[in-house]
Structures are given as C-alpha cells and as structure tokens.
Design a protein around this nucleic acid. Structure first.
Lengths: 145, 145
DNA sequence: GTATCTGCAAATCCTTTGCAAGTCA
DNA sequence: TGACTTGCAAAGGATTTGCAGATAC
C-alpha cells in the first residue's frame, strides 16, 4: 500500500492519487456523495456539509462537482426537476422511470437498455452513454386511475 | 367548412376552434413554429417575431408555449443545452442522438425505440412518453478520433 | 513558499409572474 | 363591453464567476 489515506477505490483516494488537495470541504462533499443511497443534488450535499462545517459555501459544492465530473468520477442525471443530481460513476448504473403525473421515480435495471445500446452502436455507430437515463411517462398507478 | 381562417389542421386553426383569441403575436409565434425545420427554442421564436413586430416581449412567447403545451399541440425536448426546444406534436416524432463531444445532434426514427416502449409497458406497466427523447453519447466521428 | 482552494458577493441564464394597460370577439 | 392578452419590470431559482484572502503540501 502506498498512502495512509482512505483506500484507493474511494473517491477520496482517487482525488488524492491524482494530486488534488484534500481539503476538509472536499472530504465532506465526497463523503456525502458516497453515503447517499440515491442520486443527490448540490443543495442536498450542501445541507449535509453545512451541518458539520457552517462556514462552507455552496459554490464550493458546485466547484467540487465540476471537478469530479471532469475526472469521470461522478455522473450527472437530469430527472426533469430543474436541477441536476449526481451519482458516483463506479456505483453501478440504472435508469429512471419518472412519472409525469405523480412525480414518482422508479429504478430500471441497466440491462433493460442493453439491446438499444447495441443497435445504436451497430446501426448508427453511436456510442450511447446510457448511465442514469431518465425516461418520462405515466406509471402503472396513474395510468390506471 | 366553418370559418374562413387558416385550415383546421394548422396550429392556428386549432387554437381558433378552441376559442382562443387570435392575436397577431400568437399568429407569428405559431408561424415560426410551423415553419421551423428543427426543434426551436423560445429565444429563436422571439428573434423571428421581433423582426416583424418589434413591440413583442419574450414573456409572450413563453406564455404562448405554455398554452400550446397544455393543449398538447407542441412537445418539449431538452437536448441538454440549458434551454428547452419545441416541436409541433403532429409533425411526427423522432429521437435525438446528441454527441457530448462535438455537440452535433442526429435524428433517430421513432421505430428504433418501439421494442423498448413495449417492454417497459409489459414489464413495468409504465407508459413511456418517448416523443423526442434525447440520448447522449459520442457520435461515430468523435469516437473514431 | 506558492499554486491551489475557498468564501463572498455579484452576475448569468432561462423562465415566470404581478400588474396595469391594451385589444379581440 | 368585458374577459382574455400583452408589455414591462422585477422576481425566481439553479449555477457560475471574479477576486482577494486562506490553506494544503
């Protein structure tokens, strides 16, 4: 092992390896993202960090997300809420079925779109980034009403 | 035939039939949308209208789009540009392959997603609204570079 | 020591809204 | 006439940015 920091498969470890400075703000942002069960918004990350470190500013959250996105460590998803949500890239992918009537969102396994990905690549030479795709429509509940 | 207005299969005709007032602003907005080859943004509609009618305000464009959306006469698409684009609902649907590298967008026929639509309905009871879906990724050109 | 990060405040960008005046039917 | 539409100006919410001070390494 090389460092006595967090293990290298964590976001913290990756940033460290790449030579970025590990500030307390960054560590708290990374921790919030990794702890999060679902996709998390900048505002939600901010709430968690500010609880422990009231001095922090939300622009730091955005700047950190920009960095992580650029490094491919997090993926953005737009669920049509007027704000973006983030998810660690390594955490496994899935898609979202967003009901436009009740607003509920359900997860859809990655495999459901593998046929589509194949055909886009084969027929169009297009390499689709289908991580965390959002599909809008009406859920079974609302459809039946 | 009922009126001597524009024929009833145009957006103008539809609004008229439904009892909405036909103001010059609305007519110019509708014309811009119908003439447009591709999906059009509020700003682009505004540019066209303001050229003929300098008095118009962009809030009128947004209010008209809100109305048309509510009536199901136009469909919104978010191509990830930070602004929404509009398209007449009757003009036929298709999807978009948006290259995240060069920004180019290609059209994809509706039929390419019919299998997906089927399986979402069958497996999840989810009625997907796949009009003008945007799929992000890398186009053949950028992939090869 | 110094390049990198941060907080702060202000600015952007797209879109929405309150209100009073204007206008279509 | 009178309800529906509009222009104007200001607000809104998410995100970005310039800058000067702070800090990790």
């Amino acid at each position: 092992m090389s460092h006595n920091h967090t293990h290298a498969d964590s976001l913290t470890g990756k940033l460290d390896e790449l030579g970025y400075r590990m500030t307390p703000q960054r560590m708290m942002v990374l921790s919030a993202i990794e702890k999060s069960k679902h996709h998390i918004s900048a505002e939600e990350i901010y709430s968690q960090v500010v609880a422990k470190y009231p001095h922090v500013n939300i622009s730091t959250i955005y700047r950190t997300m920009e960095l992580l996105k650029g490094l491919g460590l997090v993926t953005e998803t737009d669920l049509g809420e007027g704000r973006v949500r983030y998810h660690p890239s390594g955490k496994g992918h899935h898609h979202h079925l967003v009901c436009q009537e009740c607003g509920e969102t359900a997860d859809l396994d990655e495999s459901a779109l593998s046929a589509l990905k194949e055909s886009l690549l084969h027929d169009y030479g297009f390499s689709a980034d289908l991580r965390h795709l959002a599909i809008f429509g009406r859920c079974a509940k609302c459809k039946g009403k």
